[in-house]
């Protein structure tokens, strides 16, 4: 399995080398994408010196935390979004006739994936940590790494859940779109600015708040104004990521049994 994984990355690198222009365009797009989000944040904050007690520097850290976890997910697990398409077009069949776990095979379909966004995220996060004035110890580095992994796990868990639904419902594009925009729009600001209903969704239903809001309150030593929870709650992120991934994987396996192919 490890050999296959190494081979997968080797092929990705070769493919990227072959389609360099495409790769650089994607990389430029990633920079513009996150740059725009950060610029919008800065413009907003010029008008309000603080938002619910969060300064621009702190919100920069908030964004960088989400961005890095999300880009880690994109580098390792992005292909989960292709599952509904594979099923619809009958290309999913091939994963059943090879001697590996189907999910592992989905994640290792050669593509032009490269951890460029993740590397960009790490750089941004390092700058943001410095700007936010967080005192960095080896322990901080370890906890941030664990939170990033947990955040990527939350992303994976949720996208895997949506993908597994497509074993029953052939089209899940709308749902995927809703979840994606929820994630993009509601991870930029501290969740305490939203109404109670939204806060509950972000903390307990689709726990995007654990990708950045709760861990950020811990690292920045801030009071959680959303639920009044202790900042240590932010350290639960790895656990929640693991839980979501495990539950979605079980659901995925249930879906495999239900697989009907294209029905022909």
């Amino acid at each position: 399995m490890l050999a296959a994984y190494v081979q997968y990355w080797k092929i990705n690198l070769l493919t990227i080398a072959e389609y360099r222009a495409d790769f650089f365009m994607w990389f430029a797009f990633t920079i513009v994408y996150h740059g725009t989000a950060l610029a919008a944040l800065a413009v907003t904050m010029l008008r309000f010196p603080s938002m619910n007690g969060w300064s621009l520097r702190e919100m920069f850290f908030l964004y960088a935390l989400w961005m890095t976890a999300h880009e880690l997910h994109n580098a390792l697990f992005f292909n989960v979004v292709s599952v509904p398409e594979y099923i619809r077009e009958g290309r999913f069949d091939r994963f059943f006739v090879r001697p590996f776990d189907t999910l592992f095979q989905v994640l290792t379909v050669p593509s032009r994936t490269f951890p460029d966004g993740f590397i960009l995220g790490l750089v941004t996060l390092a700058i943001a940590t410095h700007v936010a004035g967080i005192h960095v110890t080896p322990f901080t580095v370890l906890t941030i790494a664990a939170v990033l992994c947990g955040g990527a796990g939350i992303d994976l868990g949720i996208s895997l859940f949506v993908a597994a639904l497509s074993f029953w419902l052939i089209r899940v594009d709308t749902l995927r779109w809703i979840v994606m925009s929820l994630e993009q729009d509601f991870t930029r600001y501290p969740i305490s600015i939203y109404t109670r209903g939204v806060r509950i969704v972000l903390a307990y239903v689709l726990p995007f708040a654990f990708m950045n809001y709760f861990p950020a309150t811990y690292f920045l030593g801030k009071h959680d104004a959303a639920f009044g929870l202790s900042p240590e709650v932010g350290l639960l992120t790895p656990l929640i990521g693991l839980l979501w991934t495990a539950l979605s994987y079980a659901f995925w396996n249930l879906g495999l049994r239900h697989y009907q192919g294209t029905g022909s």
Partner: peptide, 15 residues
């Protein structure tokens, strides 16, 4: 998108 031989290499690793 891969040359044939790359698909074969991947299968070699898979099996």
């Amino acid at each position: 998108d891969l040359p044939l031989v790359d698909s074969f290499e991947l299968l070699r690793a898979i099996y």
